[in-house]
C-alpha cells in the first residue's frame, strides 16, 4: 500500500527580527515524520505546543513567508514543494481548522459554506451548501446566522461541512472535538472512520487520546517539534507496559482513570 501523504524529517524554522535588524531563528519543527495511507486514520497526539497544528499548516503549504522548510513531503508518492502543496490545499487535501475564528466573522455562514461548494466545483453551490449542513443536523435557519451566533458544536459542524465539501482524499483535522460532549465526539470521529473506509486518509490531531484510540490505525506521538514514537492503539491498555517510549507511556498514565500520575523527568 502506498502512502497518500508522507512527511519525512520535516523541519520548520521561523526567521524573526528583534530590536531593529537583529535576526533570530526560532526552531519550531525539528524532525516530524508522518505517513498515512488510503483507508487509514492516523492520530497525531502530543504535548501542547509541540507543533501539531503547525505540521498541518506546513503540509498544506500555508506557512508565512518567513518560514524556512527542510525535509520532504510526498503526496501520492510525488515530492512536492510548499507551492506545489498549496495547489492541492482545499482540493485533494483539506484542513478542518481548530477554531471558529477561521470563519469570516462578518459574513453569514451560508455564504461561506456556499463559497466552499463553489470552489469544490459543485454545479449548484447553494443547494450543496444547504444539503451539507442538513446532513449534519443544521437547518436552513443556520445559513443566515453569523459565526458568533453559533454554539461551539454548531461551529465545528459548519467547519466540517466546509472541509469535506470537495470530498478530499486527505483530511487534516485539527482538534475537531475539543469541548464537545462525548456523544458528539463519537459521531465526529465515526465520520472520520467512515471517510477512511471509503478510501480517504485522515490525520486526526487531538488531545483526546482515549477517544482517538477507537478509530485510529496508528498513533503518532510528538513532542518539542519532533516525532518521538509511533504506537499501535492496542498498546494503550492497562498500565501501558506495552508502550515502548517513555513519553508515550507518560501520556497514557497521566490520563484520569489511569492513575493521573505525573512521571518525573519526561
Amino acid at each position: 500500500m502506498t502512502a497518500l501523504l508522507e512527511v519525512r524529517g520535516l523541519e520548520v524554522d521561523f526567521v524573526q527580527y528583534e530590536r531593529g535588524l537583529r535576526r533570530r531563528t526560532v526552531h519550531a519543527l525539528t524532525g516530524m515524520d508522518l505517513t498515512v495511507a488510503a483507508g487509514e486514520v492516523v492520530a497525531l497526539v502530543g504535548a501542547s505546543g509541540a507543533g501539531k497544528s503547525l505540521l498541518a499548516h506546513a503540509v498544506l503549504g500555508l506557512l508565512p513567508p518567513n518560514a524556512v522548510e527542510r525535509g520532504e513531503v510526498l503526496l501520492d508518492g510525488e515530492l512536492l514543494d510548499a507551492a506545489g502543496r498549496r495547489r492541492h490545499a482545499g482540493r485533494g487535501m483539506t484542513l478542518l481548522p481548530q477554531a471558529v475564528s477561521f470563519l469570516d466573522p462578518v459574513r453569514p455562514v451560508g455564504r461561506q459554506v456556499r463559497r466552499s461548494a463553489e470552489l469544490a466545483g459543485h454545479p449548484a453551490p447553494r443547494r450543496a451548501a444547504a444539503e451539507a449542513l442538513a446532513r449534519r443536523g443544521l437547518g436552513p435557519e443556520v445559513l443566515r446566522r453569523h459565526p458568533h451566533e453559533l454554539s461551539g458544536g454548531m461551529a465545528r459542524r459548519v467547519l466540517g461541512a466546509m472541509a469535506t465539501m470537495s470530498n478530499p482524499r486527505v483530511l487534516l483535522a485539527d482538534e475537531p472535538t475539543t469541548g464537545l460532549p462525548p456523544a458528539d465526539v463519537r459521531t465526529t470521529l465515526g465520520g472520520f472512520r467512515a471517510m477512511a473506509d471509503d478510501g480517504g486518509a485522515v490525520v486526526l490531531i487531538t488531545h483526546e487520546l482515549r477517544a482517538a484510540l477507537d478509530v485510529a490505525d496508528r498513533v503518532v506521538i510528538c513532542r518539542d517539534g519532533r516525532t518521538v514514537d509511533v504506537a499501535d492503539p492496542a498498546g494503550f491498555s492497562g498500565d501501558g507496559a506495552a508502550l515502548a517510549h517513555p513519553y508515550t507511556r507518560a501520556l497514557w498514565q497521566a490520563l484520569p482513570g489511569n492513575g493521573f500520575s505525573v512521571a518525573e523527568g519526561v
Partner: peptide, 17 residues
Amino acid sequence: DEISASLDAVTQARIWT
C-alpha cells in the same frame, strides 16, 4: 472552568496536581 480542556494529558495532570 474547563481549565485543562486544551492541554495534553501530562500537562493536565500536572496542573490539577
